[in-house]
Structures are given as structure tokens and as C-alpha cells.
Nucleic acid binder design. Structure first.
Lengths: 144, 144
DNA sequence: GACAGCATGTTACTGTATAACATCACATTG
DNA sequence: CAATGTGATGTTATACAGTAACATGCTGTC
């Protein structure tokens, strides 16, 4: 799926959920798409400023929040960053793998594998919500 | 284990690992211990300033980083905070459960339950390091 | 055209974290 | 004992992250 296709699908996705991928939101999403892997809010802000002159933090954060809410992006807490989710259509719980060495990220689905954790939590009288886990390790390339 | 016992054990633990729980580090650890649950760096900083007058962010961050490195604290990325680990002796991988409603945290061990995730990661050509997962959900009290 | 409701712009601020350099304390050793 | 090296701490300044609060603009509906 190329960038344009993605944007189109994203637009449709938003409409189906009863809200709009406005020009600004689309532009922000586009900026995020341009980067490989994790993008920071202030990076997006800088990019946005290049493209349209003035822009303040709230502008970017609001757009990013919206995109996260729609499932188009995932927030990666531990990195204060965001990544594109390329399977926003389906209900999923994912695990975001961050390589400690090169910083590359990938997302894998873990709906099933989470059950073990869910059981442990349940045993501690705790009910897990939907998760987007972030775990660290070594990617194929950096593993040597 | 009360606070004093913990501090003593912590001191021993550091020595065994070839480093020192200095007065400052001990004081910071004590300040963290005083709080239930998650503590923020700037909260600790404020407390520290009350006790010893001047103190700047790096002082606190260095101490906290040290304590995390020694396994005495866990960093909770998603909350920009820290919690005490009360079983720093043993090699463990834990899951930190954060209640979405009341914010209380608890730590549970998940060495075994992580294997499922490890397998999924391996299938994606990724080798997981040791983890301290943070997951959100509802605690016993807030679950209703 | 008036209004409601949402999106965006703007200002100012709070909170989180670190770089870079200065100084101190203490152990080692020549 | 003085010289030196090393790690801990102090200090200043700044970078980076996020939000509150209010102003303005846009669009659809009655």
C-alpha cells in the first residue's frame, strides 16, 4: 500500500467512524508517513512549519491525538513518539518492537499471545484493557 | 519489610554489585519510598529541596537513573514516573499494572507468561530483551 | 441570517529531561 | 605526602514535551 492509497483508506476509515480527516489532519498524517518508524511531535511540528509557515504545538498535538484516536497512529509512550499503523481496519492489539541498537520499530499482532498476561493480571484482580505494548530487543540486522 | 530494612537491603545489594548507595542516593530512594505508587522526578526534586535546600534536576535524575540501574526502582515510561521494586534480589521480568481510573499501580511477575510474546517476536526475527511491561486496565476496586 | 458545534489559531505556560562544564571527595600510587 | 585519576555531585542553561485557556474561523441547519 503506497502513501496515497493509505491516505485514501484513512479518509474513508474516518468517515465510516463519523468524523473527518480534514486538510490539516491529512497533512499531519502525510508528514508522519514520510518518516520511517517513530516520529516525534516536535519533528512533525517543524515539518509543518516548513510547509505552511506558522504552526504551534497545540495544532500538531490535536491532529496527532485525533489520528491516534482513529487508530491510524499508535503512540509509543516510552519514546515520546508516534508510528503509523497500517492495519487500522481490524480490531487488534499489537506489540511494538523497538530495536535497542538501531531504533527501528515494527508492529506485530499479539491478540492471542496476550492471553497469558491477561490471566496473570486476572489472578492479581486486575482487568487489562486493550493494549499496545512496547517491547525492546534486537532486530534481525543488529542481532549479529 | 519496612522502610529501614529495605534501605539496608538495598545498600547491601549495591555493594554486592560493586557500587555504592551514597548518602544522596539513599536519600532519594527514601523519598521515593515515602510515596505510595508512582512518583515523579520533579516531586522527588521538590521533596529533596525541602530537606536540603538547593537541588537541581540533574541531581535527582542521576540518582534515579542509578537506582533504576540497580533494579531498586522501575521506570514507568508511560507515566513519566518511578516505582519501588520490592524484589530487586531476584532476576525477574514484571508487568506493571496501572489502573486507568484511580492510577494505583501494582507489579506482578510475568517471567513465564512472557514466553508467548517472545515466540511472536522471534517469529518476526526479533529478540526480546528483559522487559518491564506496563499495561493499563481496571483494578479490583475500580472494576465495580 | 442567526446560531450551534466543531476545527483551528494564538499565547503563554507547566512539566520533563539532558548537555556541558565546574567542583568535590576519596582512593591509589609514585 | 603530594600528585593524580576516578566517580559523585553541584550549577547553569537549555532543549524537548505537552497543555490550558481563550480567540477566531468554518460549515451546516433551521
Amino acid at each position: 500500500m503506497n502513501s496515497n492509497q493509505y491516505l485514501q483508506a484513512a479518509e474513508l476509515h474516518c468517515e465510516q467512524r463519523g468524523c473527518k480527516l480534514t486538510a490539516l489532519r491529512k497533512q499531519v498524517l502525510e508528514l508522519v508517513l514520510r518518516h520511517e518508524g517513530v516520529v516525534k511531535a516536535y519533528q512533525v511540528l517543524a515539518d509543518l512549519q516548513k510547509e505552511r509557515g506558522a504552526a504551534a504545538p497545540p495544532t500538531v498535538y490535536r491532529a496527532l491525538d485525533f489520528l491516534v484516536e482513529q487508530g491510524l497512529l499508535h503512540r509509543v509512550d516510552a519514546l515520546n513518539g508516534f508510528i503509523v499503523c497500517d492495519h487500522f481496519e481490524c480490531q487488534h492489539e499489537s506489540m511494538i518492537l523497538v530495536c535497542e541498537t538501531c531504533g527501528k520499530v515494527q508492529e506485530v499482532d499479539v491478540m492471542a499471545a496476550l492471553n497469558g498476561l491477561r490471566d496473570v493480571a486476572q489472578a492479581a484482580d486486575f482487568t487489562l484493557s486493550h493494549q499496545n505494548l512496547m517491547l525492546t530487543g534486537l532486530c534481525k540486522v543488529c542481532r549479529v
